[in-house]
Amino acid sequence: MQSEKLYSDLKPLLLSLAYHTLGSVTDAEDIVQEVFLTWEEKPPQQVRDVKSYLCRSVHNRCVDFIRSSSRKREAYVGTWLPEPVNTDKFQKNDPLAEMVWKESLSTAGLLLLQQLSATERIVFLLHEVFRYRFDEIAEIVDKSTANCRQIFHRAKKGIGPLPDRNPEIIEKKAAFAERFAEALTTGNIGLLIELLSSDTVLYTDGGGKVKAALRPIKGSEKIIRYFIGIKDEIPAGTRYETSEINGMPGIRLVVGEMIFAVITFHYLRDQLSDLFVVMNPDKLSHFNRMK
Results as ranks from 00 to 15, higher is better:
Arg149Cys: 02
Glu4Met: 13
Phe276Ala: 08
Leu13Asn: 11
Ile140Tyr: 01
Lys172Ala: 05
Ile66His: 05
Leu14Val: 13
Lys102Pro: 02
Pro12Ile: 13
Phe65Thr: 01
Lys72Pro: 00
Gln2Asn: 15
Arg73Gln: 06
Arg289Ile: 07
Leu111Lys: 15
Gly208Ala: 00
Thr79Lys: 02
Pro43Ser: 08
Glu257Leu: 11
Leu14Lys: 01
Ser220Glu: 06
Tyr240Glu: 05
Glu194Leu: 04
Tyr226Val: 06
Val100Lys: 09
Gly237Thr: 00
Val35Gln: 09
Pro82Glu: 11
Asn86Gly: 12
Ser243Phe: 09
Ala213Arg: 04
Asn166Pro: 00
Phe124Glu: 02
Phe287Asn: 01
Phe176His: 07
Lys92Gln: 14
Gln45Pro: 07
Asn288Phe: 05
Tyr267Asn: 05
Leu112Cys: 08
Ser117Arg: 02
Lys222Phe: 06
Gly78Trp: 01
Val63Met: 07
Ile170Pro: 07
Ile151Phe: 09
Lys211Tyr: 04
Asp205Trp: 00
Tyr76Cys: 03
Ile31Tyr: 10
Pro163Glu: 07
Phe65Leu: 10
Lys211Gln: 12
Asp9Gly: 04
Thr26Pro: 02
Trp101Glu: 13
Val210Glu: 00
Tyr203Lys: 06
Lys143His: 07
Lys89Tyr: 13
Asn280Glu: 14
Asp9Met: 15
Ala97Arg: 09
Ile251His: 07
Lys102Leu: 07
Glu241Ser: 12
Ile137Tyr: 06
Ala97Phe: 04
Phe36Ala: 09
Ser117Thr: 14
Arg269Asn: 14
Leu37Met: 14
Ser24Leu: 08
Leu192Ala: 03
Asp164Gln: 05
Leu14Glu: 03
Leu54Met: 13
Lys11Ser: 15
His59Gly: 04
Leu111Gly: 10
Asp94Leu: 10
Lys231Val: 04
Phe276Asn: 05
Thr87Cys: 07
Asp30Cys: 04
Thr87Glu: 06
Asp64Gln: 10
Asn288Leu: 12
Asn246Met: 09
Glu233Phe: 05
Lys231Gln: 11
Thr145His: 06
Ser57Gln: 15
Asp164Met: 01
Arg48Ala: 12
Leu125Phe: 05
Asp282Thr: 06
Lys211His: 08
Gly208His: 01
Val77Trp: 02
Pro82Trp: 06
Thr87Phe: 12
Gln46Asp: 10
Ala97Met: 11
Lys11Glu: 14
Leu275Arg: 05
Trp39His: 12
Gly219Asp: 05
Leu284Glu: 02
Ser220Gln: 08
